[in-house]
Design a protein around this nucleic acid. Structure first.
Lengths: 251, 251
DNA sequence: ACCGGGCTTCCCGTTCAACGGGAAGCGATC
DNA sequence: GATCGCTTCCCGTTGAACGGGAAGCCCGGT
């Protein structure tokens, strides 16, 4: 950044400031932001004031800071994520109405699973995924689908790297994972019991752009021993619908 | 801004760059961005490169630029809008299932109506509102609700300013508008036929935080001559539910 | 009333990142 | 092969950004 001894760019600092916010930390003081973003206090105060000035951040009654509606607006309108989500929503609703469990839509982002949308059924069980939340590619049914259809380099990189287990049953053996990925490409679906949480089974299918590249994964989280037949059928139908809708919207 | 003859701040320029994107313009070249943001070409290229570096923007196969997933993620996780939306979604789905027309959730932002969420029924009619889109406060049923419950200064400011008509029937007379606002505060609902489009009627109710301040407006768009009774009841029930959900999530 | 701790604001000299004009490189399309 | 637009590189100038320090402010504790 300009004139900074640390040699980082303004843009980077702004990102670091925005990164200090998350689901569990939606309001902070400027000093807190400075500490978490590792910025000198006076610098943090100045940057926060700048961002508030532009509307990217907002102040509440107690001078505390939160993400601004303007940021939300700028990030969403015109975003790929919103288009995809709007195309997918009606189909996700249908899945959720029939399966009556959590339904998620996820994309590949920076070697991780990024959840773009999630519908929850009132009487559905626990589910750690959140909209705008992430999970490792190998440790979620959606991630496995995205990984299976991702570029070879991605697979090599992820399978080589450290593979943390999210639950005792998460598959972390590269050889077994390769076999699972091949199965996904062959069957067009993955059923992953206990991968994220011991009590649940993830079922996921790929969502294609038209008939081509895989752009997302659609999944449901079922109770561990529930039958998967209906879910698989519903997911496949919905994925095909989303593909058609995405293709139709931009002719 | 740093060393800029124009005297603007970096932050401001970044916002100007982001502003060049919208629903109808999701991918642009760096030069296009420069022109629309009124930045010198070389400067625009540099800033775009910076933003791509940080992931706020992304490049596609043809070197063109679009909003990045990272920006979407940073703007959403931890945002007030996402919390509100997640709390509201189940209730909006119920409204939409019963009324079978477009259902919207909107908030007040910078003297305008900002739409946070929208569900569309397959066989519902036209609807110009979009997620992350805006409408004037006086020219939409949601906006009228937000205006009616906004601070007095806001009402004075909006009613004094130029009041553009969105359709031939949009009420633009300050006196009539004041009467409508009083009606909304009294009845807790507004029925606005032809305000946005001649063929439709907007119905909107306030959504409160707990039992207090109005934080949003919930609305449906009906065909012009459709009965409004069911919609009003459903909206009221849903608004109460959302209030409870918003209150419960942060004790 | 007094004190202490944290947040915030103001001040100010230093410095280097940002700036943007210009020109050359690279594809397209006509 | 000439034109047009996007992009990249270069480079001298300059003032915006930086951050240390100190003072102001508002708490809650004693």
């Amino acid at each position: 950044m300009a004139n900074s001894p640390s040699g980082e760019a303004v843009t980077e600092r702004i990102v670091r400031v925005l990164e200090t916010f998350d689901t569990d930390r939606t309001v902070q003081t400027a000093s807190e932001i400075g500490r978490r973003a590792e910025l000198p206090s006076s610098t943090a105060h100045r940057i926060v004031a700048d961002l508030v000035e532009c509307g990217l951040l907002e102040r509440d009654e107690e001078h505390r800071v939160r993400l601004g509606m303007r940021l939300w607006e700028l990030a969403l309108r015109g975003s790929h994520a919103l288009r995809l989500r709007q195309a997918a929503l009606p189909f996700m609703e249908r899945v959720q109405a029939r399966v009556r469990e959590h339904t998620q839509l996820a994309v590949l982002e920076n070697d991780e699973t990024l959840f773009v949308e999630r519908l929850s059924h009132p009487q559905a069980g626990a589910n750690i995924t959140r909209v705008a939340g992430r999970l490792p590619l190998h440790a979620s049914s959606s991630g496995l689908v995205l990984l299976a259809h991702g570029p070879r380099e991605l697979q090599d990189r992820v399978l080589a790297g450290p593979l943390a287990a999210a639950s005792p049953e998460t598959v972390t053996d590269p050889v077994r994972l390769r076999r699972i990925l091949a199965g996904i490409r062959r069957e067009g679906v993955v059923v992953a019991p206990g991968t994220v949480e011991a009590v649940s089974t993830g079922v996921a299918v790929p969502v294609r752009e038209g008939r081509g590249r895989v752009i997302a994964a659609l999944s449901v989280v079922l109770p561990r021993e529930a039958p998967t037949r209906v879910a698989v059928d519903e997911l496949r139908t919905a994925a095909a619908g989303i593909s058609a809708a995405v293709g139709a919207h931009r002719p």
